[in-house]
Design a protein around this nucleic acid. Structure first.
Lengths: 151, 151
DNA sequence: TTATACAGTACCAATTTAGTCCTATATTGA
DNA sequence: TCAATATAGGACTAAATTGGTACTGTATAA
């Protein structure tokens, strides 16, 4: 699995729509109608994105949301970070203090390295990349190389 | 977050211990004592790893577990796959059928690409890599490059 | 036949997530 | 100043997931 929450997915869809049509301010209602995500959920997500600084929010009539940065500068990692906090695939990779098993655990440092590798991927992909229409699983090239100490 | 389950973490710890001491068969009790993971939990994890073919299990007295492959051939992706099923960071990247929002969704294909990139990372890291003692977050080099269609 | 050890499954408590709703605050324009 | 429009900040509940444990069954060795 290793799954993102639905809210994170919604956030990406909403931001992608905003990026595509960034000539005007977007109300939560407009975003809801354009993306087919229920209004209360759109509201919830936009509030979080606003608090995280990914979008500007303007209150009152004629208000709405707009992107705080250009799509090329908004990374997938920052979207995930806004909704779920920093990427941490295990407790080890998030916590500063040791867990119960720490004294017997041989691998704590290594989860940190794996985590770092995943964060690197997510920081290298931007909202602009996500907006490109493409055939599933096909046309983009991804290259990953790992040089652990053992090699 | 983007977190793995604790059981997946336990599995990696258990397999790393087995790899380090693979001269003999390991009983669940021995594994529990060596790793400080409670016995019932060790049992649960080992059963899953056995069913997935990552370890051989031998029943009866003098029985126990042993690795089914050398540590260099057991990838982190395969461990995650055994415990949690295939990596799928969103519903999009797992399901074959469209979700409710599909018709309005601009990015479905792209989650597949992001997912693929993460799977590549996880397939490139083996149990042998995880066994190397290292200073947290420092000594390993990770290189990731992404070439989406937009660049 | 008995002791040992894994296999399979069921179960429950705790946590997390998804979704909704209510009240407060800010802004515009008549 | 007032009414309409929008976001802000919570609280709350139902559903799903996860973690941990227990029980019963099966295989093997001595």
């Amino acid at each position: 699995m290793l799954r993102l929450s639905k809210l994170t997915d919604y956030a990406t869809v909403l931001l992608a729509y905003m990026a595509k049509t960034n000539s005007h301010l977007h109300t939560a209602l407009e975003l809801s109608e354009a993306t087919a995500i229920h209004l209360p959920t759109v509201s919830k997500v936009m509030k979080v994105l606003s608090k995280a600084g990914l979008v500007y929010a303007i209150r009152g009539s004629k208000g709405g949301y707009q992107l705080a940065q250009v799509p090329e500068q908004i990374t997938v990692a920052s979207i995930i970070g806004a909704l779920e906090g920093p990427v941490a695939i295990t407790e080890c990779s998030a916590q500063t203090h040791d867990c119960e098993q720490a004294s017997a655990c041989e691998i704590k440092g290594n989860w940190g390295v794996v985590n770092r590798a995943i964060v690197n991927v997510l920081e290298s992909i931007t909202l602009a990349d996500m907006m490109v229409t493409q055939q599933q699983y096909s046309s983009a090239e991804i290259q990953v190389s790992w040089q652990g100490l053992s090699r």
